[in-house]
Amino acid sequence: MKWALSLCLLLSVGLIFTPNTLHALPEESGKAELWLTKMSTAFSELNFRGLVVYGDGDHWESLEYRQTQHKGTHLSRTQYLSGIPRTQVRSGNELFCIHSGDHIAGLTPDVFKPLNRDLASKLTTILASYEVGVFSNIERIAANDAVFITLTPKSDDRYAYQLWLERTTGLPLKADLLDIKGDVLQRFQFAELELNVTTPISMFSSSESGHALRLKPTPDRVSSSEASWWPAWLPSGFALQGYNKVSGSEGRQGERLTFSDGLSSFTVFVDHVENDLGPDLTRRWHATSATVRHTRSNTGDFRISVVGELPSVTVSKIAESVTLVDQLASR
């Protein structure tokens, strides 16, 4: 009898503390594809303006974002409201930054990445690695009704996403990046959104004080035939997105290999080092993990570094597996 009473008590407690969201059941997968495509299209086609807060819970930044389509060209303007005054203007594949001083890497982040207009082309890749849940809850964010969507990785070697998409357009009003424990690592959220706003074209012109950056065109096929190094282990679903050789010190070259599963990405850095091996390190900056290890080959000493929006265990495992292509072939 006691066990029956205990069971009743347990069930009662469970019912009381079950979050409301658990009552929402995922809808069919076709809807998931529809919503993700809708989100990507919204970034491609909508004219809107909004105030966005982004950060990780400990540090917050804010920006004002505007985008419009003009004569077939995508125009956007991001004015960062915190930190040093700076603005980024995009016209097609041209990118201009307006600020004082030198351009520092990471100064003008794309907070919507990877939930941008390129996402639709990666849908098959994404669905191979993530379970997508569309929930029937309608929540209200920045005065707009939002549909709640989850992107849960099929394996534990990467992070999950929670998205709140504007009900009619699919524009993401809020997005969380979560680790396996459910901790929010990164978030952006519209504080204010005006859809179908016409922004004067003059706001998308760069002033003389601006300087140009160039967006890397996405190649149809990325050749890795020149790569000397390669990770023997890759998390499932990750494929090479970019490969570069860079000039290092004393004319020595380094290699950069960038992989992505459609949402998360990581970069493998291989650099020739001499008489300066330094320590092996692993570190995490909220959603971004980085690891450095050193290895010796018959052509010298090398530093292998892996950086990406992945758990530190995953980037370490990738780094440990990076080896010379010649040795990989002989295995």
Partner: peptide
């Protein structure tokens, strides 16, 4: 390296 990764685009 982290900053370079973030700017890979």
């Amino acid at each position: 390296y982290v900053l370079e990764h973030e700017n890979e685009a």
